[in-house]
Design a protein around this nucleic acid. Structure first.
Lengths: 345, 345
DNA sequence: CTGAAAGCGCTAACAC
DNA sequence: GTGTTAGCGCTTTCAG
């Protein structure tokens, strides 16, 4: 009932109203609105006053129609297990991008790619609803997005597997390097039997991290340690740790491809009475709250994921503005040492 | 260089093109597009064919201008420490809302309210850029949003402190109840000296949770246990735990107002050699990854935060559609028992 | 049932 | 410099 009565809300003032109040034409009003240089000081003053008097706010939809732009970009996220936040990675990328957008005239639209109707997302993107799109990993469909990039500016958060060509850009960290940093630290602390709980090899990040670990051991002249793959969850990490231990091969260092998995692994080590870092030093890739939620806290390679989100957004905006951007941008990473490795050496 | 050449991209087909191909007028084409009942089967067929032939996708901007709607709603988030994801609460609400939106024709725009230019957000919201707004806690400015609700549909995630009236709705959990559930469980397990690490009393959630704990103890005839306030972070929880222990009063049960703080507290207990749940049983409010990252995992009251996000979104959409909605909606919560209390009793 | 015409609010040539 | 005139692409009376 109350709802009925207060819904009507007064219609917002239009540019025409402003122009009339300022006694100029809509064109002139529009000009001052857009900061055109060729306008009298007087006109500017009059229009400005009218604007604040009417409390006028330009209608973006109309403006966008006239300009054929939308002033907004989309962040496309796979619905996957429908729980994209189980992984702090997404949260961080989104945060980074959203925060960056706040300082621009653009807006960020969050698009969850529904598993059952992926075409809906495609149609939305191709329907001129956004000026560009940020694509977060979804290997099974990246060929589609590569194709999309021929019609709409697109920036990927990971290199698409598809080998098709397209005018897209990629912003990501160097995962090989991340694993190298973690492994080298362990070696520097005197570890000689370094195992890894890897991410699925179906993901390029998984392959790269495994490769960084392997190559570092090789160039240090150490024997390749045992490898077990985890499913990215703490439980998966715990299971991988069990397998690693059950094999019976001695281990004095562990690289975990993600902090979530490391957390699970830490639980297993604790249960078995294996001390960290005294018996096994552990270093993990990706620094997030999982890294500091264990005892002892985990040495981690910080992937600067929020920065990645911001850079993805900025790269896309530059493309939208017509600038020429590099095809690949690598986000810097850094090793953060904590107790899980510190006591050794 | 390549950028220059492939930018042009073909112009997308318009409704007019579809109409001509189908040999009907734009009006008719528009009608079939919008599922108007008064159109010949033939016309529908022709237009439908033309649409798929041209791969036509309606331009939402134009459609919105004509309808005076935007088909999108905003989620307003305080920039705060610029790290809204430090708290999984935001991530969960956003996820819930985004997922829900995916099944509608609406779009979700993420709006970070910049600390230095809060007016920018206001202008955006009042500029007709969205059909409604979801407001996540920002006490210092909620009077503004209450005022905004008189011009734009608004749904709050927490009851605004401002006592001004406005046609807004609120969707939240009952925080008193949450604390009652946690405290009762502890009592049921035989605890008689129940302390609480509370959330800041400046937040209504903090006050409500403290009240739930206090009243439950009272009605059980137990003496009021010690209270220490934490700042919501794990470190704050740890500090509060230290203070609690240093007071020297015996404690056999602990309620933590948030899982993050509980995590910090668990570390202190472990360091002091106090066993959980044997010496002190702990129950926390808000079930998230912090709840399961401890050893033992924490009994928690699940606040269904993602459901809250979804309900907020749905409530807003209903208002937008002109439906009359309840002013307050309470999200159901449930207790999830884990090892941190289980072994007792 | 369908087409013609007007208009959503703003921008952008093109004259004056 | 500033006003006039057309649209941007779609929806929607209003006749027919």
């Amino acid at each position: 009932m109350t709802q009925e009565t207060d819904a009507p809300a007064v219609v917002p003032p239009t540019l025409l109203a402003v122009a009339q109040l300022a006694k100029v034409s809509r064109s002139t009003a529009s000009r001052v609105l857009n900061g055109s240089p060729q306008v009298t000081e007087e006109a500017i003053a009059a229009v400005t006053r009218a604007i604040s008097e009417l409390n006028y706010v330009p209608n973006r939809t109309a403006r966008n129609l006239a300009n054929r732009t939308t002033q907004s970009i989309a962040m496309v996220i796979p619905q996957q297990t429908s729980k994209f936040f189980a992984d702090p990675y997404f949260a961080a990328v989104i945060q980074g991008a959203a925060l960056h957008m706040a300082s621009t005239e653009y807006t960020l639209t969050l698009l969850i790619e529904s598993d059952d109707d992926p075409q809906k997302t495609r149609r939305f993107l191709e329907g001129g609803n956004v000026d560009g799109a940020l694509i977060l990993s979804h290997y099974t469909r990246d060929a589609d997005y590569v194709a999309l990039s021929r019609n709409l500016p697109v920036v990927f958060g990971v290199q698409p597997l598809s080998t098709d060509e397209g005018p897209y850009s990629v912003v990501d960290v160097n995962n090989v390097e991340a694993a190298v940093l973690a492994t080298q630290l362990l070696i520097g602390h005197g570890c000689t039997q370094i195992a890894i709980i890897g991410a699925p090899l179906g993901m390029s990040a998984g392959r790269d991290r495994a490769e960084g670990w392997r190559s570092t051991l090789a160039s240090a002249g150490l024997a390749e340690g045992p490898f077990e793959e985890g499913d990215l969850t703490p439980a998966g990490g715990a299971a991988a740790m069990e397998r690693l231990l059950d094999v019976g091969r001695p281990i004095d260092g562990l690289v975990a491809a993600t902090a979530q998995m490391a957390q699970g692994a830490m639980g297993v080590l604790k249960d078995r009475g294996i001390a960290v870092p005294e018996d096994i030093a552990v270093a993990t890739i990706d620094n997030n709250f999982f890294s500091t939620s264990t005892h002892p806290p985990l040495t981690s390679v910080d992937l600067n994921t929020d920065l990645k989100g911001a850079v993805m957004a900025e790269t896309l905006l530059r493309i939208v503005r017509g600038e020429i951007v590099e095809k690949f941008t690598t986000i810097p990473i850094e090793l953060i040492e904590r107790e899980s490795t510190r006591a050794r050496s």
